[in-house]
């Protein structure tokens, strides 16, 4: 494998890791607050459809992005009402929303555009286009680092950089702010938060809303940056891989970044089975590469790579009692 092939693969790694990263960070907020969210997939799908449709109809990617966030927020709100207000089962609510999104996105897209459940292709202002970072052209000829900067680091859409910036931001919010302290506390022991005079319900809804916004970004990225429009089931299980990354990273923001880059790398390899075969001299079936993130997560859950301790109050509705 030559250097330029490696750069190509790293370039796709970053592009493919971004939706995972956004979704995984979104799930991090909800889960650290004690609300498990298996519905990342559904929220991404809803956001992808809404952003693709609105971006096409309005011609503005920003309106599309807003629509995506809005759609994801609606799904997050339903999950919040079901699991916080009515203390329902969080897994069932999440699964139900995933099914709802899978069916409804296709239905709405078909009603609007009659193109077999897809939204029409978008281009120009209706899409997030690659941004060339400063000096990328000038540094292109610097050996080794120049092409790395030009090919891999530069030339992505704004959302890629936003996703990466969100990693330190999430860490800071969680560990250095009052909101973060309370958020972590409510996921560990809601009774402690309640008796300290802080609203458990308010905190959890805030967390679920953040999840909605970030998951909206992830979905919008799928339809308006990674692809040019929405297609049936376009998230293809990324919501679940993001969840796997979150567990793999033990619910910590910086580790989430590494997990998503790793899983994105596997996805990039799955697109280039020829390269994999050339490097390791064995023909690896693509489904095996697709399954790698899950296999790794199972290993983590089985305790082989350190112990993954979920937030203690995760999945448990809070019932006030003494």
């Amino acid at each position: 494998m030559d250097y330029s092939t490696l750069l190509q693969i790293l370039d796709s790694t970053l592009r493919l890791a971004t939706p995972l990263l956004l979704a995984s960070l979104s799930g991090l907020f909800s889960e650290r607050s004690g609300i498990f969210d298996i519905g990342l997939e559904g929220k991404m799908l809803a956001a992808a459809m809404a952003s693709g449709a609105v971006a096409f109809l309005s011609g503005s990617v920003w309106l599309g992005l807003l629509a995506g966030i809005g759609a994801s927020l609606v799904f997050a709100a339903i999950h919040g009402v079901a699991s916080i207000t009515f203390r329902g089962n969080q897994l069932i609510s999440g699964v139900a929303l995933n099914f709802l999104a899978a069916g409804m996105t296709v239905l709405v897209a078909q009603r609007l555009f009659s193109q077999g459940g897809r939204t029409p292709p978008i281009s120009g202002e209706a899409r997030f286009n690659p941004v060339t970072l400063p000096f990328a052209e000038a540094l292109r000829d610097v050996p080794i680092l120049g092409p790395l900067y030009y090919e891999v680091i530069s030339g992505h859409s704004l959302l890629v950089y936003a996703a990466i910036a969100l990693v330190p931001l999430s860490w800071w919010v969680l560990n250095r702010t009052r909101f973060g302290l309370r958020l972590r506390a409510v996921g560990e022991n809601p009774a402690a938060v309640d008796t300290a005079g802080v609203s458990v319900v308010g905190l959890r809804f805030a967390a679920v809303a953040i999840t909605g916004v970030l998951c909206g970004l992830a979905g919008a990225y799928m339809a308006t940056a990674l692809q040019a429009g929405f297609g049936k089931d376009m998230t293809a299980g990324r919501g679940y891989i993001a969840l796997a990354a979150l567990i793999f990273a033990k619910w910590r923001p910086v580790a989430v970044l590494w997990a998503c880059l790793l899983f994105g790398f596997f996805q990039a390899l799955a697109l280039r089975p020829d390269v994999v075969e050339a490097v390791i001299q064995v023909k690896v079936p693509v489904p095996f590469l697709d399954a790698l993130p899950y296999l790794l997560t199972v290993l983590v859950l089985a305790g082989f790579v350190g112990k993954a301790i979920p937030p203690r109050a995760g999945g448990e509705p809070y019932v006030k009692e003494r």
Binding site: G180, R184, A185, E188, V193
Partner: peptide, 28 residues
């Protein structure tokens, strides 16, 4: 109130538990 079953966050420090809900500002 000191409850019979303590209302403390297990993986927080003493300090973090003490300020929880009684923080002085948005930053810790």
């Amino acid at each position: 109130m000191v409850f019979q079953h303590f209302k403390l966050v297990q993986n927080f420090t003493v300090l973090e538990n003490v300020i929880l809900g009684a923080e002085d500002g948005p930053l810790l």
